[in-house]
Design a protein around this nucleic acid. Structure first.
Length: 143
DNA sequence: TAGGCCATCTGGTCCT
DNA sequence: AGGACCAGATGGCCTA
């Protein structure tokens, strides 16, 4: 439970007009608002649970700080694109190139994200190379 | 202290 | 009528 608007408690705020009406209507509206608030909280908690599950399967390249919701979505998108690219390329590298496929597969395993890391000397920061960086408004972003 | 991120409340809209 | 979903507003927490 975090922020609450001073004027907006669980008792609801439809009171202004209803105050002048019957107490039953006010009570009904209050009860409905509280129920709606509770449902909304539950819905958002479900959404956050889904984000947490997504964070667990998406590359974080050893960041101690967890990805924001926006970053999680962008990274999931890039991760899917990267995996899709590997599958597409794999069709062209069959038989004797099995080793190549194994190498690609290894690179997208969480314990091996390091093989995708590059160092940006300008910023002094590491970032995920090409296939696992994400696009934002047409610009490539290295989070 | 400013800015980013987030949780919560709220009213509107759509659907059953 | 009531529930689900959404977007806007608001305020708290954290970090650079």
């Amino acid at each position: 439970m975090k922020a609450r608007r001073p004027s907006c408690t669980d008792s609801g705020s439809e009171s202004s007009e209803l105050d002048s009406k019957s107490p039953e209507k006010y009570e009904t509206a209050t009860r409905r608002r509280m129920a709606a608030n509770a449902r909304e909280r539950k819905r958002m908690q479900g959404l956050n649970t889904a984000f947490d599950r997504l964070r667990k399967v998406v590359p974080q390249w050893g960041q101690d700080k967890k990805l924001s919701k926006y970053e999680t979505l962008q990274m999931a998108l890039s991760y899917i694109v990267a995996l899709n690219r590997i599958l597409t390329d794999a069709r062209r590298h069959t038989g004797s190139h099995r080793q190549w496929l194994d190498l690609q597969f290894d690179c997208v395993q969480p314990e091996n994200y390091s093989c995708l890391m590059r160092y940006d000397s300008a910023t002094g920061q590491e970032y995920i190379h090409s296939s696992l960086s994400y696009q934002f408004d047409g610009h490539e972003v290295h989070a």
